[in-house]
Amino acid sequence: MAGQEPPQVLQKKLFYQGRKFSYEVNRLRLPNGAEGEWECVRHPGGALAVPVTPEGQLVLVRQYRFAVEQRILEFPAGTVEVGEDPGLTIRREIEEETGYKAHQWRKLGEFILAPGYSDEIIYAFLAQDLEKLDAPPHQDEDEDIETVLMSPAEFEQAILAGEPIDAKSIASFTLARPFLI
């Protein structure tokens, strides 16, 4: 029933602390008195850009993602460092991953990525007035990224065709759609 008291946290157990997230199991008592355990991935959040060239092309990346064991198409994104503004995070990530710099930014919104098991929030931005930098992208050692240019129509067709694309990119594309040429 809406408006009820939130569950009472009886115990928190940290099982893993990694460099990007932690994993915990919490014992809760629900308002109806029932008790149980809930697992949660704690994540500092991510920032994502929908970069658009002056010609109206989307700048995406295709990279291998270990969890799904394949290369997927997505917009440039990165983990927000503790205490960092998500706008700063994505300005850094877009240059490192794609070799482009944006001179115009618009916050599109934010959304909870997977509330069934994680508290991660994605901060989505539209990046326009792009400038291709002279230096190649400066990717992290553990990244294998290919930059891909597509029109909004081509990206939409890739989504509809079932090409491997992550949910944060599809959601952010939807938020950016009214601003695209």
Rank of each mutant, 00 (worst) to 15 (best):
M1T: 13
A2M: 12
G3H: 04
Q4V: 14
E5I: 09
P6H: 09
P7T: 04
P7C: 10
Q8S: 09
V9F: 13
V9P: 05
L10T: 01
K12F: 03
K12C: 06
K12Y: 00
K13I: 12
F15D: 07
Q17R: 13
Q17H: 11
Q17C: 07
G18V: 01
K20I: 12
K20D: 13
K20W: 10
S22K: 08
E24P: 00
E24I: 02
E24V: 05
V25A: 12
V25W: 05
L28D: 06
L30T: 09
P31C: 12
P31N: 10
N32G: 15
E37P: 01
E37T: 08
C40N: 14
V41W: 05
V41C: 07
V41G: 00
H43S: 09
H43F: 02
P44Y: 00
P44S: 05
G46F: 00
A47N: 07
L48D: 01
P54D: 11
G56E: 14
G56P: 15
Q57D: 14
Q57R: 14
V59Q: 02
L60E: 08
V61R: 01
F66G: 12
E69T: 10
Q70R: 15
I72R: 09
E74F: 01
G78W: 00
V80W: 00
V82M: 04
P86R: 06
G87E: 12
L88A: 13
L88W: 04
I90T: 09
R91G: 11
R91M: 09
E93F: 00
I94E: 10
E95T: 07
E96F: 00
E96D: 05
E97M: 02
T98V: 08
G99M: 02
A102Y: 05
H103Q: 14
W105N: 11
R106L: 15
K107F: 15
G109F: 06
F111L: 12
F111I: 08
F111S: 08
I112H: 15
I112Y: 04
S118D: 06
D119T: 03
D119M: 05
E120H: 02
E120Y: 01
F125A: 08
F125Y: 15
F125K: 04
Q128N: 06
L130D: 06
E131F: 02
E131T: 10
L133P: 07
L133S: 04
L133Y: 01
L133E: 07
L133K: 06
P136E: 05
P137A: 08
P137G: 03
P137T: 06
E141F: 02
D144A: 08
T147H: 00
A153K: 12
F155D: 07
F155W: 11
F155H: 04
F155P: 05
E156N: 09
A158L: 00
A158H: 03
A158V: 03
L160M: 08
L160R: 13
L160V: 02
A161R: 14
A161N: 14
A161E: 15
G162Q: 11
I165R: 05
A167V: 10
S172Y: 02
F173V: 13
F173T: 11
L175T: 11
L175S: 07
R177C: 03
I181K: 10
I181F: 07
I181S: 11
